[in-house]
Design a protein around this nucleic acid. Sequence first.
RNA 1: GCGCCCGUAGCUCAGUUGGAUAGAGCAGCGGACUUCUAAUCCGCAGGUCGCGCGUUCGAAUCGCGCCGGGCGUACCA
Length: 568
Amino acid sequence: MSLADDDRLIGTRSRISAAMTGMIRERWGIAAEVDLGPPRDASFGDVSSQIALSIAGQLGLPPRDIADDMVAALREQSPSLGLAEVSVGGPGFVNLRFSDEYLEDFLGLLDARGLCGCLPDVGRGRRAMVEFVSSNPTGPLTVGHCRQAVLGDTIASLLRHVGWKVDREYYYNDSGRQIERLAHSLASRYSDIVSDGSTPFPEDGYQGGYIESWAGDLACRTRCFRWPDDAAEFASFALERAMAMIEQDLDRLGIRFDRFFRETELIPEKTERAIASMREVATPDGPLAYDDSEGKTWIRLTALDRPEDRVVRRADGRYTYRLPDIAYHLDKLQRGYDLLVDVFGSDHLDTSRDVVACVRRLAGPGEVDRKLRVVIHQFVTLMEGGRKVRMSTRAASYVTLGELIDLAGSADVTRYLFLTRRAEAHMDFDLDLARKQSDENPVYYVQYAHARISGILRNAREEGIGLPSAPGSVRGLLRHPRERELMRLLQECPFQVEAAAAALEPHRLTELMAEIASAFHGFYHSVRVLQAEEGSDTASARLLLTSATGKVLRDLLGMVRVEAPERM
RNA sequence: GCGCCCGUAGCUCAGUUGGAUAGAGCAGCGGACUUCUAAUCCGCAGGUCGCGCGUUCGAAUCGCGCCGGGCGUACCA
């Protein structure tokens, strides 16, 4: 099959939508975008549109009459659109059934190119950046960071697969009060070792055991350090160690960042420029940034429909969190990205809204609304023995990312489980369940399907059974309901991935995989692949279906970066 | 108090942006291995979609008001 034919095949669904849009414009003179989705029940058809219901009010016509007209018009074109059947259902759905030829050809295409080779090029080489984790280097990453790490990484992966050029970026604080507190905590542990404990532990210091271990390493050095004279040394040593620890944990999840952006890169030029710009923005209540009598600088967020004005530079000249973050977002916009994704925990929601409001005002609402998208995820509640595990970084009562991976059995299980829920849904992570490593775990279900497929392919090679020799030679051989269901589902995959990327919703991938695995296991139990009673042509056709399913699963598992095992 | 998120089967969650008879996985019950992998499959059971008004041809989905949980409400990040 030629490349042009392949592209025509991939574009079939959008040609159907376009044809429907065209006939609505011709017949009724209105513009309507037609979305195709799976119908409630497979018996209605392969895809369905509710367009007649949506435009009925506008046209003042009964939806069924509209649907009837559209079906009549569609029937004339159906062969060229890969459709075997067009009908009206329920209150006015337009139900479509693909021709067997279309599904068979699509199957061949998926097997030849893999799912990745069939994905639309939405990004067209444009640049996107996903900022995530961005946890301050004051301790190890914990369970909540783990969810965010997996989310952000998979969003980046999704975008890359649909044609974006993606950078992953981690933004962190390398100065300020938290870092000072960290340095002070380290200095105290250090003084316990090298001297007489002359530096008392700060009241709200970080109590994690990792700091004692750093202190031990520092004590091995020939030079002797003193607090507060060597505060800078303590801070840089702690920062270096903390970031190394964080990178090591991320590495266990297989996550690499393209850039670690330090807050001090913005200070003072970019932060001061941001303040200066805000001073020049006039609002009905006065300039967007203003000073008070105590020498503090405020942002007039109330003029941007935000609940409260906020201090962004204190009297001692230090910035509070929001200002560097505003400067950072301006910087990201100026770096020429076409899409910026922020992944934050729900605790950052309020601040994020403030930052976005300011950035919109400074860079222009159109530009920001077009480019910036914020994904907010809810917290993870860790459950153990049927009870919640309380977590706090400062008090050192937490389960680290590394421990979580150990408890869950593997990075793969951890990644997969975090992707089985929508970002904005609260999530219970049951440690006891994770520890079991049993078949209650959904990742095994999908992996088992892949391993089973690999086994069949191995046996086929041994028995000398090959794939169909010519693309057309599976015609009419895959007519079992289970076969057809699997083909229909596979055909949908490129569009589901595209939708998941557009919505920045990686959990759709795990849902899709579970569906495919289920359809495959059902198929496997309904018919014999290699010893097909119907003959060797059928065996080859089923082998093609098996092989294509394997490639789709392999590529989907690849997108969430979970191993696709050959054996289990 | 105020703002945002969430509330769907015993448990954990989907639900294609307002559409057809509300779905899946676990857990429960009953079946299927001399067969390409039983980490699988098939069947049964399980629901006032937190509650109440409203919007309209039509609501789990949108609006308002309650109830419950989470996160914010810092001159921490």
